[in-house]
Nucleic acid binder design. Sequence first.
DNA 1: GGTCGTTGTGGCCACGGGTGCCAATAGCGT
DNA 2: ACGCTATTGGCACCCGTGGCCACAACGACC
Lengths: 199, 199
Amino acid sequence: MTTTPARPRAAGRPGATSHAAIEQAAFGLFAERGFAGTTLDDIAAAVGVGRRTLFRYYRSKNDIPWGQFDRTLDDFRRILGSTAPDLPLWEAVHHGVVRFNEFPGDARPGHRERMELILGTPELQAHSALRYAEWRAVIAEHVADRLAVSPTDLLPTTVGHVSLALALAAYDAWMRDPSRSLAGLVDEAMRGLRAHLAC
Amino acid sequence: MTTTPARPRAAGRPGATSHAAIEQAAFGLFAERGFAGTTLDDIAAAVGVGRRTLFRYYRSKNDIPWGQFDRTLDDFRRILGSTAPDLPLWEAVHHGVVRFNEFPGDARPGHRERMELILGTPELQAHSALRYAEWRAVIAEHVADRLAVSPTDLLPTTVGHVSLALALAAYDAWMRDPSRSLAGLVDEAMRGLRAHLAC
DNA sequence: GGTCGTTGTGGCCACGGGTGCCAATAGCGT
DNA sequence: ACGCTATTGGCACCCGTGGCCACAACGACC
C-alpha cells in the first residue's frame, strides 16, 4: 500500500551539516592556514559541529579534499560504458579519460583549487594513491570487459596504470600552466607517448 | 700528513643500533602482528633502544619498510646513465627499468617480502607515492638529458609516469604469481602496451 | 688520566588524527 | 504522549610525531 519510496525514507534526527558545508569551510581554512596548519577542531568549529561528527561525513581528514569521489567514479564508469564498441580499445579508453577530465567552464576554478591542494600537499599526494587505485580499477574492468579476460590480468592492469600515468602527467603540466586545457594536455601526453614508443 | 680519510672520521658516542638491525626486528614483528598492529614501542623494545631513537634512523614508521631508498635511487641513476646512447630512448629507459628490477637470486626472498608488505598495506601504498615521485624524477631527468629539454616538460614527466605504471603493473602481477620473474613481467607489460597502442 | 668537543641517546611532554562507546537529541508515525 | 530511529557529540584512549634537553660514550689533546 505504501508507495514504496525510492529513498529509504527519512526518519530520526536530521543531519546537522552536509558535505558541501564541510568542504566549503574546510577549503577556506586550508587556503588561509594550509592543510597541515588546519586542525579538525578548527574545521568542526567553523562548521559549527562536533569534531566527532566530521568523521561521519569523511573517513579521515585526508578524504575531505577528495569530496565524494565514489560518485565521480560512477560517472567515469558511465562514460567508459558509453564509448563506441567499434572504436579501437585504446582510443575508447583514451577518449573516456579525456572526457572524464572535461569540466564545464564554471566548475573549473573549484576543480583547479582542489587539485592544487591535493597535488601540492605531500600528505594528500600520498593519500591519493588509494583513490587512484579505485580509478584504475574502473579502467581495468572496462578493458577486461571488452577483451573478455579477468580485470586482474596483466593487460587490463597495465592499461589502468598507464592511463593514470598520462592523466597525472597532464595534471602536473596543468599545475605549471593553468592556461592550457586539461583535456588537451591528456591528449598531448598520449601523442607524446605514442611517438616515444615509435607508434 | 694525515691520509685525509674519505669518511668524515668517527667521533662521539657510537650508535646504539643500525638500519639493518631495526629492519630485521621490524620485519619480524610486521610478519607476526601486521604493520598496523605493531607499534613503534614494540619495535624499539625489540631492538633494545628508545622509541625516540628510531626517528633518528627513519623519518617515520612508514619509511622503515623502504629502507634506505636514496641509495637505491643512486644505483638507478647509474644504470640509466650507462645505457648505450645510440639505443632509441624508449628502449634505453625500458632497459634501465628492467635492469633496476633484476635481483640476484639470494636477494629475491627479502625483496619479495618487502614488496608484499608495501603493496599489501594501505598506509604503505599511500606513503609509497612519495618514494615513487623520486623514482620518476630520476627517469624524467635522464629523458630530459637525452632530449636536451627541461625535466619538468610534458614528455619527460610522461615517460616517468608511464615507466612507473609499467613497473607497478608488473609488481601487481608478481604478487599474484611469484613464479614469474619481475624483469620478465616488466617486459611483458611493455609488449602489451605497445600492442595495445598499435605500435 | 683528566678535560673538552663531538655525536648519538632517550626520557618527557605536548599535539593532533583516529576510534569505540554511549547518552542525549530531534524528527517521524501511531 | 509514546516509542522508533538516525544522528549527534562528548569522553576516554591509542598512537605517530616533533621539540627540548640532560646525559652518555667516544677520540683527541694536554
